[in-house]
Design a protein around this nucleic acid. Structure first.
Lengths: 342, 342
DNA sequence: CCATGTCGTGCAAGCGCTATCATTGCCGCA
DNA sequence: TGCGGCAATGATAGCGCTTGCACGACATGG
């Protein structure tokens, strides 16, 4: 239904979104006061607050965070850079992160780096362009990316690892120590012929190194190894298992780079008529939700993703308030969970 | 290497990031020209372009997209709203989406809605606040959210479903038709006692309705049903399978809301000594990567996530150029893939 | 040779908000 | 009564970019 007034309204007030000024006019205060109300309601008088609240509702005002960010040089956004989404061992961490950030009124820019440093660099550039309050990265860095990360005003947080000299902050754990712990555990269980399935990345490499180091130190025998692409996926299991069977001597335990791959190996082993762990034991990594739900349940290394998220976010908050960070690296540790598969 | 000039530079030019003006001064052109070069290199003369390029490198300039977005009211960012990350049937779609968008120089704001309309509303508000070029949503909407989505300048795209009257654009398929197809398939294979495991959401509901409708139309017998929380996860399988065994009569096929749940049921069935599909058949949904890799491989319904991503992005491009959308709903269809599990 | 493009560029006015500083009452306390 | 102090608000100057308009230089065609 079209009434005469409609066109007039359209002329007087075009398709433009209402702005702070509109709200201010409507509430009979200045734009500054409305801004204050939005960012920190308790600094305005209760009666004023009420009028502003009403004006916002009446005008259907939606703040413009681009303008706000430009003026304050705080974007209320953090960039999260991860390699993949599918079968990703980080998903729990990321999910926790996104939720914690949402609770703090901060949004997340998601970047998928794959294994490409070039893509990583571009994403860091994008994050800096958007003046992200922080950049949380679990991907691989090279020299250029480090440089970029250094220079930008955004807090740079590396998660899931602990480099010797972190750029901004690192929240992670020692992959080498995790590898060693697994070795010790397998020795204690009496396994003698471990097979390592290592993803083609530095973190997995460190775990394998740690494992072998400790295994040898404890007088263990020979270790066989296989390599898979990043990330360690369920789908790799077929080839890995097929290769396994061609070894001179079957291993008695397979150490995987992720619970998904471990799950895949269990499936393959069972399909081939083997019993897990009796004929072949399997160790996962990450304590993804499936690990405790698989049959048999999967022995794995738990990383407290929620804790990583919390620490990262606490640091972002501090950094946002201009405080210095108490530490450059936070070790959240890990925990070996012995279940049925090994 | 430290030269005398360095300190002077530091004094003259404090920690401030270089801006367009700095680059312009360095290149001996106006800021407008640098802006043009950045956004559309071919409109500036080749020689000028070269000088600007050099100036950008020399100053280490990083554009400020907040300022750019404010001025142009285009943020080069789209919001992607999904319920979950873990075990999510959307992950392949999202991954394709993020990659396509990255290729187009657009970043992604990730929002996790869970099953809460309140959270969805807040995320839509956030997306509008950031002046997202588009909002891509696969979550549940209520009246308020619809209103918001209508009003905002962002293109609103619903994926994975086809409502009768989409808000902006819908890219999806008919869940009802998918349910019917599964029913027809199972009849053709001679199954007689299907068990439906329906997630507690409207889409899964539609598939179940479609299934039952067609099953009855084809003269099939009684259908049993169970409900699980959203999303249909691997971990639900234990309870679902346990409940199954308590039925008066064991079903001969279980129809699941996701491949992950299907995988879980296969694991449970096998752990209980049943053979799949001989003793119990299983049908998944989504053709996630595991579906083709499980033992037995999982019969499922394939959705072309990459196609959904492409269509959505094409629409965003058109909308960005101010063109009207050729259609309000795009049906990408689906495809039943018969594998070993049913 | 002038009218008419076309191309490359500069000028300047915003985009919508935040933050600094100044201003106004008003209370309490000496 | 006077005044420092505090609470609440307003005025104003940007934040760094985009873009419409204008302008000069040069090429084109009648």
């Amino acid at each position: 239904m079209k009434r005469p007034g409609d066109n007039l309204r359209l002329v007087a007030e075009p398709a433009r979104n209402p702005t702070l000024d509109d709200v201010a006019a409507h509430a009979g205060v200045s734009a500054a006061t409305v801004s204050r109300f939005i960012n920190n309601p308790k600094v305005v008088a209760a009666s004023t607050a009420e009028r502003i609240r009403a004006a916002i509702a009446a005008t259907g005002y939606i703040p413009n965070l681009l303008a706000g960010g430009l003026a304050s040089s705080r974007s209320r956004m953090v960039a999260v850079l991860i390699p993949h989404l599918t079968d990703s061992i980080f998903n729990d961490t990321i999910e926790a992160m996104v939720e914690e950030l949402a609770a703090a009124g901060t949004n997340v820019m998601l970047g998928l780096t794959g294994v490409s440093p070039a893509r990583t660099e571009e994403l860091i550039r994008d994050a800096l362009s958007r003046r992200a309050d922080a950049i949380i990265s679990s991907g691989p860095l090279n020299e250029t990316t480090c440089d970029l990360a250094q220079r930008g005003p955004s807090l740079f947080i590396q998660i899931w690892e602990l480099p010797e000299d972190p750029i901004g902050l690192a929240v992670g754990f020692s992959h080498r120590a995790a590898g060693r712990d697994v070795a010790r555990f397998l020795v204690s269980r009496g396994y003698t012929r471990p097979h390592l399935v290592t993803a083609d990345g530095s973190r997995a490499r460190m775990r394998s190194d740690g494992f072998i180091e400790e295994w040898r130190a404890l007088g263990g025998g020979s270790v066989t190894e296989a390599t898979v692409d990043i990330p360690s996926r369920f789908g790799h299991a077929r080839r890995v298992f097929a290769d396994l069977r061609r070894l001179d001597e079957m291993p008695d335990v397979v150490v995987c780079g992720s619970d998904y791959l471990a799950q895949g190996l269990i499936v393959e082993a069972q399909a081939a008529g083997l019993r897990v762990p009796d004929n072949l034991a399997v160790v996962g990594f990450g304590n993804s939700s499936i690990a405790g739900e698989m049959r048999p349940t999967i022995t794995t290394v738990e990383i407290d993703g929620a804790r990583i998220a919390r620490e990262a976010i606490a640091a972002i908050r501090r950094h946002g308030r201009g405080e210095a960070l108490p530490e450059r690296a936070i070790d959240v540790g890990f925990r070996l969970i012995a279940r049925e598969s090994a």
